[in-house]
Amino acid sequence: MRASLDDLDPIRFSALNREFHFTLHERCPNERVRGLLETQWARLDTIRRSVSPHVPGRSRSSVAEHAELLDLIAAGAPAERVEQAARAHKLRTAAAVSAGSGGTP
């Protein structure tokens, strides 16, 4: 994802973003939670495809947040800290998409 930032292709970036997130959540031992995540991701794909190209500035921040998550996981950070960082990432993304689509963040 980082390498694609200079010549941003929103469709390719979205595919890499999906791969990143699925790589993390596919390790979840709870099959029900994995199913819920996959269903939610599919529902949000339509929004991502239609709005994400209008918020390209979010890409760099998103990649930095992904790196932070990986660093926390690699360092063996407490699950609560990883969850906190993941939740903040999702909320910042939601706010950027909302603002980019004319909504209120």
Rank of each mutant, 00 (worst) to 15 (best):
M1D: 07
M1W: 01
M1I: 00
M1C: 02
R2T: 02
R2D: 12
S4A: 12
D7Q: 14
L8Q: 03
L8F: 01
P10T: 08
I11A: 11
R12C: 00
S14W: 00
S14Y: 00
S14H: 00
E19L: 10
F20H: 08
H21G: 09
H21T: 10
H21V: 12
F22H: 12
F22N: 09
T23V: 02
R27M: 13
R27W: 07
N30Q: 13
E31T: 03
R32H: 11
V33W: 13
R34W: 06
L36E: 15
L37G: 05
E38I: 12
T39M: 06
W41M: 11
A42L: 15
D45T: 01
V51P: 07
G57V: 08
R58Q: 11
S62C: 04
S62I: 10
E65L: 01
H66Y: 04
E68K: 10
E68P: 04
L69M: 13
L69V: 14
L69I: 15
L70T: 06
L70E: 08
D71W: 04
L72M: 09
G76W: 02
A77K: 07
P78Q: 13
R81D: 13
E83S: 09
A85C: 04
A85Y: 04
R87F: 04
A88K: 10
A88V: 11
H89L: 03
L91D: 15
A96F: 00
G103S: 11
